[in-house]
Write a protein that binds this DNA or RNA. Structure first.
Length: 449
RNA sequence: GCUGUGAUGGUGUAGGGGUUAGCACGGCAGAUUGUGGUUCUGCCAGCCCGAGUUCGAUUCUCGGUCACGGCCCCA
């Protein structure tokens, strides 16, 4: 038998109900924060992603040529397409800031594992056309609000600011420019050495660049700071002790964190990490991520920050933007694991329809005569599943039960004669005969809810 | 990129060089000609793919595919 390609998944009705509920929950939260949904194509020009991430990304892409030999690729992420859309649709003419949300599948050619698929789904937002601590706080607050609303437990937010370390290093005199013959600027080398814990290497780098190696120790102390908002005090002390170092980024982060505390529910854990590097050079300011430790290696469920990308599309005045991407599949995995551990039957809040399903069972009669009632009930907002196989009553009841109905409406010859329908609640067992009209049936169902 | 484990009806599993491939859930039909969740009976449905060893392979060997883990990497 032909199998589904590696790293892809099918979603059965039960699974899909949960995914739809989750998407709607996220969408509703985004809407409450003023974000509007957009959509971009599943495939894009290959150039879009090499421009953002460099040619090395191609090995991870589902890249191909169309019949006219245009280089294309399935999208590996959604930020670059959104940036492209803003430029291409002339959205710089819209009132600022833009608050955009999106959801869709992305594709990466890599080893598939639990929580890492070749086709995966991302929900994300971008706030474009305004920057600074309050804009950043709005984005973080939405992320926290979403994770809080979906009932996720035991998650950790880490917030940092790439500018703090960068300012400290450049303030000390380290260059942010790539020297001839080198692969990265000295600032980036220093950040990497700090991240790896290589203090000797850092001191040597300082010496090589004509900087007093004694400055390596306070930077190490800065990187080692752990905790929440309270770590900003010691960080300030350390940075103040260094010559020529600006405190601007630290002040910004402080303002962002204060605003987040006021705008969003308190997350289970919030840590300030001043050395979050995020590896990507387009991040320019605040960066944050959310991890769920129980997912182990694939535990990062959300990541974002402030970045500059729109200059690539000729709109430098819209930079920096701020946004995040949420790993839809990973959050769902965590929710499923947590629901199972706690015996919760509903994984995503709202995944089961509280109104319930109604089985409409014509029995031994000419079905055509009651179809208008089915249509009317549906128009009135009821979920009606019409019994199509002409089952006898016991079978029909069993069927109604097995597909999860809350109510049955049985209409047999006797009912037709009396101008009535039998409406029954499968939960209480209560049954009553009501007039054979959609209004009467709907009223009876409503009364038994 | 490195590496470990595994693959039996739709699902979860037992078994094993020659079997009628067992069990449970499920679906369908009946017991039951107007009322479900219990019970009983019958039926449906399976050894991932390819090559090799063998009289004979679902079982052993190799390769592939897929899944699940552990490192690396990346978001």
């Amino acid at each position: 038998m032909v199998q589904r390609p590696r790293g892809t998944r099918d979603f059965t009705p039960k699974v899909m109900a949960r995914r739809l509920a989750f998407e709607q929950l996220l969408e509703e939260r985004a809407r409450r924060h003023g974000f509007s949904r957009i959509q971009t194509p599943i495939f894009e020009s290959l150039d879009l992603f090499t421009a953002k991430s460099g040619p090395g990304i191609v090995s991870q892409l589902y890249a191909f040529e169309d019949k006219s030999e245009r280089p294309l690729t399935l999208r590996p992420e959604l930020t670059a397409p959104v940036m492209r859309m803003i430029a291409e649709e002339g959205m710089q003419m819209l009132p600022r800031p833009l608050r955009l949300s999106y959801y869709g599948q992305c594709y990466r050619y890599e080893e598939s594992k639990k929580g890492r698929y070749r086709e995966f789904f991302q929900y994300g937002v971008e706030l474009v056309g305004e920057s600074g601590p309050l804009a950043e706080a709005e984005v973080i607050a939405l992320a926290i609000d979403m994770l809080d609303a979906c009932g996720l437990e035991n998650w950790e937010v880490r917030i940092g600011h790439v500018g703090i370390l960068k300012d400290a290093l450049t303030g000390l005199g380290l260059s942010a420019e790539i020297p001839d013959g080198a692969s990265e600027p000295p600032v980036a080398s220093a950040m990497r050495l700090l991240d790896k814990g290589d203090d000797a290497g850092l001191a040597k780098l300082f010496t090589d660049n004509g900087i007093n190696p004694d400055n390596a120790a306070p930077l190490r102390a800065l990187a080692d700071l752990q905790g929440g908002v309270e770590t900003l005090g010691p960080a300030r002390d350390i940075l103040s002790s260094l010559p020529g170092v600006s405190l601007e980024a630290l002040d910004d982060l402080q303002r962002t964190l204060d605003a987040v505390a006021a705008l969003a529910p308190a997350p289970p854990s919030l840590a300030v990490d001043l050395t979050v590097a995020r590896g990507l050079d387009y991040y320019t300011g605040m960066v944050f991520e959310v991890k769920v430790p129980e997912l182990r290696g694939e535990g990062q469920v959300l990541g974002g920050g402030s970045y500059k990308l729109l200059h690539l599309f000729g709109l430098p005045d819209l930079d920096p933007c701020c946004g995040f991407g949420l790993g839809f599949d990973r959050v769902l995995l965590a929710l499923e694991a947590q629901a199972q551990a706690s015996g919760r039957s509903e994984v995503v809040p709202g995944e089961t329809d509280p109104k319930g399903l109604v089985a409409f069972i014509p029995f031994g009669i000419d079905v055509a005569g009651v179809l208008p009632i089915v249509a009317s009930l549906r128009n009135a907002g009821e979920r009606i599943e019409l019994e199509l196989r002409g089952r006898k009553i016991p079978k029909a009841m069993k069927w109604a039960n097995s597909i999860g109905c809350q109510f049955t409406v049985v209409i047999g010859p006797r009912d037709l004669e009396n101008g009535q329908a039998m409406v029954k609640s499968l939960e209480s067992g209560e049954q009553q005969a009501v007039a054979l009209t959609a209004d009467a049936i709907a009223a009876a169902i409503q009364a038994m809810r």
